[in-house]
Amino acid sequence: MSSIVLYIRLRQKFQAKMNEIISIEKLAHLIGPKDMTTGLKQKPIYKVKPEDNAFIVIDVMDIIAAIYKEYPDVDIQTVGPSQTIIEVQPKKRKINTLFFVIVWILLFIGAGLTIMNFHEDVAMRSVHQKIYYLITGTHNDKPLILQIPYSFGLGLGMILFFNHIFKKKFNEEPSPLEVEMFNYQQDLDQYVIVHEKKKSELKRHDD
């Protein structure tokens, strides 16, 4: 019996360009007999296609299958994560600076507004009156010119945070809500696993 052991450790995440051919060397760290690993490292596993999403997940089983095809009798040991995420880089980065300026102004005004609210014991009305005075130098008890855009911004901010409307346009990253739903489902599943196990163990002891 052969006792050659091959150790694989997948990388957590890395970036790849469009149409790039991903070899084992890029995906994972290999340790084993040198003559074996040098050949295996060049072995292609996946080619990034234009129709792929922004993220590609490669499972360690894909790599094991590729190695197994060549060396069926080698003992493969995996260490670390069992999946690796490939982030496909978009072709060009554009209008980033414009976005940066917009977000900068947004955070600037937002931080100012929230700290003013804190100082005013969270009285948005007097903060609005104060901002009106701060900019124009005149007093206005009902600064609707500030408050109507504020009201619409409120809705827009929530939509932006959950990234629902621009989802197709902007990126394919999951929205926080989707991540939260996923986490909640996983917690539930974990609970079921632990809870059901306990129940069945109790039953077994009762018998």
């Binding site: 947004l106 005004i109 600064p143 009201s151 911004g153 409120l154």
Partner: peptide, 14 residues
């Protein structure tokens, strides 16, 4: 005040 109001609204909405 219109852009200021809009930006503060977006921030509070977020």
């Amino acid at each position: 005040l219109i852009p200021i109001g809009l930006a503060s609204g977006i921030f509070v909405g977020m």
